[in-house]
Amino acid sequence: MSITKKLIRFWPLYLMLVPCIIYYILICYVPMGGVLLAFKDYSFRKGIWGSPWVGFRYFQMFFTSYDFPRLLKNTLIVGLIKCILEFPFAIILALLLNEFKNEKFKKISQTITYLPHFLSTVIIVTMLQRILAPNIGILNQFIGKLGGDPGTFFLMEPKYFFQLLFSMDLWRNIGWDSIIYLAAISGVDSALYEAASIDGCTRLKKIWYITLPGIRGTIGLLFIMGVGGLLSSGFEQIYLLRTPGNMSVADTLDTFVLKMGLMNGQFGYATAVGLIQGIVGLILVIICNRLSKRFTGVSLW
């Protein structure tokens, strides 16, 4: 069938695609073109095209700025926490849940651990703020009961910020993230386990030699997907967890873009910083994908 014939035959399908295509053009691709702003001295009056070019000035400005090392450090710490440090926990939970023989218990614990995923970040941080409140919050009360100092203001101390971010994020996502691994584990051939039992394998050995290699593909894919967010993850949590006390560490590239762009109106500068994040993320995904393809045979494309 020739192309024109096909086009005629499929016209209702194209019609069905129209809203989606318009959406992607207007909401995704036009803003993607908007990264040109990073090279322009933008003014609302002149628009993106009419504004004069400034070349790489904003990039230079950013890399030499006083904020740069601190922002990069904070962003990298958050990225490492979210993309790498948290990564194994969901796998561990899936392995643990898989070891349950009692189906009912397994079901109940799954129901409970998935739950926080459906709470919004605003709700979680509001809860956290009350739970961690000095003297009257439940955590500080327990600390007081155990003989510690119940007056710790966790949300105001920079030294607790990353710990809080980590625990909060883990609390919220561990159960949900484990679903995919559980699904992958259930796909591992059960004959392998039987054979291993006959050979006298212990549980731990079965996990190490059968389960983990069996779900390696899933682990690889999720890791590649996650790594792209190394420089741009955790905006919601950071933005909401910011207090005057922890401002020095609760400042990442994301919050900087927001502050510079939407609050100070420096659109070009903010776009440049955002563009750096986007490009680094894309490059990281490409590199990880290539490495993963070479070493494990797993890849996104």
């Binding site: 803003p31 073109g33 908007g34 873009v257 762009g261 939407l262 903010a270 776009t271 955002g274 986007g278």
Partner: peptide, 10 residues
Amino acid sequence: FGGGMIPTYI
């Protein structure tokens, strides 16, 4: 990859 916060806002 996306345009980022500011181009999206504009």
